[in-house]
């Protein structure tokens, strides 16, 4: 055995035992029957997968895909101008980048709690509006789709800004100048020169936002209350309260499959061909 083999051994053992084996177990559980006291039993069955076609669960899957898509679109709309600004900020580039990434480096739980603090009935917005006599009863700002969307966009915006900034940074500034010299107005330069050239970064940013949003658990749990159930919450519920491990396992695999499809779509899209 050469020395390199020993360097890789601990990581290989750990990932095999605690990443791949658990996923394998989930795969096996997804085709088994639910036990009487939780757990799993024989016989093998595809029932957990067929149950996912139930309108109730299809609605949750669809809602998750929809929320993740909406969050991605919002992150793209909000993040692109920000990335463009930073890329053009000259000497202050790094400072701006650090400022955008700073909140991202604080605890995810704390960032989500901050919105709970701002949006709840006795929270900042409602208290201020009530004190100013704008409203009499608190507005229902929390525990709805809007709050979850806000939380997702807030948490994952840097994931979009970073790759798009990297793409814009590499872009040759003289191309935009040439377009302007040839009479293109700023907006058509943006649409016909800058956007196509930064497409690989945009595609990467979209996937980096879409995948964690699709599988998000904490944001819908804290900001959506019990109402906005996404697929992550469904999985958690099946493994804890409902104790239907086969169904939870099948849902987990479907979630991973959809995430993998999103990743594949990005890698296959013509925009990213040249990047890879």
């Amino acid at each position: 055995m050469n020395t390199r083999w020993w360097f890789l051994l601990p990581a290989r053992v750990w990932t095999a035992l605690f990443l791949l084996a658990p996923l394998g177990i989930v795969g096996a559980y997804s085709v088994l029957t639910r036990g009487d006291y939780g757990g799993v039993e024989a016989p093998w069955t595809m029932e957990s997968y067929t149950r996912l076609i139930d309108p109730l669960y299809l609605a949750i899957l669809w809602r998750s895909v929809w929320m993740a898509t909406l969050s991605t679109v919002l992150c793209a709309l909000l993040g692109f101008p920000l990335a463009l600004f930073i890329a053009r900020a000259g000497r202050r580039k790094n400072l701006w980048l650090q400022l955008v990434l700073l909140p991202f480096w604080t605890s995810f739980l704390v960032r989500t709690y901050a919105w709970l603090f701002i949006l709840r009935d006795t929270g900042l917005v409602n208290t201020v509006l009530q004190r100013l006599h704008v409203i009499r009863t608190p507005l229902p700002l929390l525990y709805n789709d809007g709050a979850v969307l806000l939380g997702l966009v807030y948490s994952f915006l840097p994931f979009f800004v970073l790759p798009v900034y990297a793409a814009l940074e590499r872009l040759d500034g003289s191309l935009a100048e040439a377009a302007a010299d040839l009479g293109a107005r700023p907006l058509s330069t943006l649409r016909r020169v800058i956007l196509p050239l930064s497409a690989p970064g945009i595609a990467a940013g979209c996937v980096l936002v879409f995948i964690p949003c699709l599988g998000s658990y904490l944001t819908p749990d804290l900001l959506g209350g019990g109402k906005t159930v996404m697929v992550g919450n469904l999985i958690q519920n099946q493994f804890t309260t409902a104790r239907d491990w086969p169904f939870g396992s099948a849902t987990s695999l479907v979630l991973m499959l959809v995430s993998a499809l999103a990743l594949l779509m990005m890698m296959r899209s013509p925009a990213t061909k040249e990047m890879l």
């Binding site: 177990i25 989930v26 599988g215 998000s216 979630l255 995430s259």
Partner: peptide, 11 residues
Amino acid sequence: VTPEIVTGVSL
């Protein structure tokens, strides 16, 4: 790329 919730339940 595995969602945290899936990592958690699989472990």
